[in-house]
Design a protein around this nucleic acid. Structure first.
Lengths: 122, 122
DNA sequence: ATTGATGTATCATATATCGATATACCTAAC
DNA sequence: GTTAGGTATATCGATATATGATACATCAAT
């Protein structure tokens, strides 16, 4: 994802893999960095393990692009870990990720790539 | 995608966007570079327009990784354009792209991200 | 024979990824 | 109360990817 792309959600396509994973991992609510790492592993069934280098660089870019924002409020009042920094999707971020996911879904459907495993004849 | 990842199809996840688009654009048969560019635009409904810089660099990496191979035979015996270079997915390439698409589909389903467009309450 | 679309390729630069490393706080066990 | 291990954010440098511009040759049709 380049420096800035204005406010057209579709201008962010294709989202870099790390950006897509972070946005999906944050989800509809809010999440802090370390939790995002774990959630990425969870939603990919362990296929993608994101380290801090990728994570925080990606977070910085997403902030710069206005796809996420920091919310000082913490979701869980039980914990008071002052180190945590929580993030949530902005309206632009939600639209961008929805648009991107819709595009991916359309491309998957259009190509029928789920059926490309070897062993089949074409 | 790094230099080489052996022969485990899942080791290529997450595929860089350009690699995914090229693999999906080539499809089950074979296709030459210029046609891939057009096909990427087609399968993304014009959302992604891949230029030659991205295309040929990606092709080179996919060749190096054994996900595609060149086939000197041309699909269309009508045309005899000697410039064209045709490519098709290898067995590894088919498995890798099928695995990646399955992973994306799973992640889309699991997160419900298709419903994240603003206007909805969470 | 000129024109415009087709076709492959490379260069320089900008973006992105990744592992390693650093630093500090938190919690539980001792 | 201090030590140990997990939690948490951050940065660095090396490597990998992406992109626009440019170049140059071939093809098809006029």
């Amino acid at each position: 994802m380049p420096q800035t792309r204005g406010h057209d959600p579709r201008a962010f396509a294709p989202l870099p893999p790390a950006a897509l994973h972070v946005l999906l991992a944050i989800g509809p609510d809010e999440r802090h960095g370390y939790a995002i790492m774990g959630e990425v592993g969870r939603i990919t069934n362990g296929a993608v393990r994101m380290g801090p280098g990728t994570l925080y660089g990606t977070i910085k870019r997403l902030l710069d692009n206005g796809l996420i924002e920091e919310c000082s409020k913490q979701a869980d009042p039980q914990r008071t870990d002052q180190r945590r920094r929580y993030y949530r999707l902005t309206s632009l971020g939600r639209t961008a990720v929805a648009s991107e996911v819709e595009r991916l879904q359309s491309m998957i459907n259009k190509t029928g790539a789920l059926k490309w495993a070897p062993g089949r004849q074409h």
